[in-house]
């Protein structure tokens, strides 16, 4: 679509939507949100980009094949369950690591978080692949 308004708005909105999707993903552990919905939001940003500039440019902007993003996510999700091997617990047991930082921020790193990041990436990869495929089929 060749519209200046859409092009300019997309550039602005892209960063906002992507940032919001990351926020939603991290929020998901204790409040509404999570990897799935965050991934959907991020995918919508990329779909918006491809609507404004075309699927070819969207693929270029991603830099890696969209399915590789999903592969990365799948790998994170699968490997997050393996960490419990070092703690002697069964597959997928949640492990928490809360580092003591001398600041007022409470930081909790955990394998469920890694799993959620994996889900986030899988959803982005899968949705973007389907959407770009459909968009290219129309041309």
């Amino acid at each position: 679509m060749n519209s200046v308004i859409l092009h300019t708005a997309t550039r602005l909105l892209m960063s906002l939507i992507l940032m919001f999707s990351v926020y939603i993903m991290f929020r998901g552990h204790n409040e509404p949100g999570g990897g799935f919905i965050g991934g959907l939001i991020a995918a919508s940003a990329i779909v918006l980009y491809s609507a404004a500039f075309g699927a070819t440019w969207a693929r270029q902007a991603l830099r890696v094949p969209s399915m590789s993003i999903a592969g990365c996510g799948l790998f994170f999700a699968a490997i997050s369950g393996v960490f419990s091997a070092f703690a002697g617990s069964p597959f997928l047991t949640g492990l928490w690591w809360i580092p003591h930082l001398n600041i007022e921020v409470h930081l909790a790193l955990s394998t469920p978080l890694l799993f959620d990041i994996g889900v986030y990436l899988v959803v982005i990869g899968a949705i973007v692949t389907i959407a770009l495929e459909m968009e290219e089929a129309e041309d």
Binding site: F36, A126, I130, A137
Partner: peptide
């Protein structure tokens, strides 16, 4: 719902391809 969403999306793409 998530699984059904994925399957339905695939089925729609496939039917479009079948139509083409």
């Amino acid at each position: 719902i998530v699984i059904g969403f994925g399957l339905l999306a695939f089925a729609l793409v496939l039917s479009y391809r079948a139509y083409v």
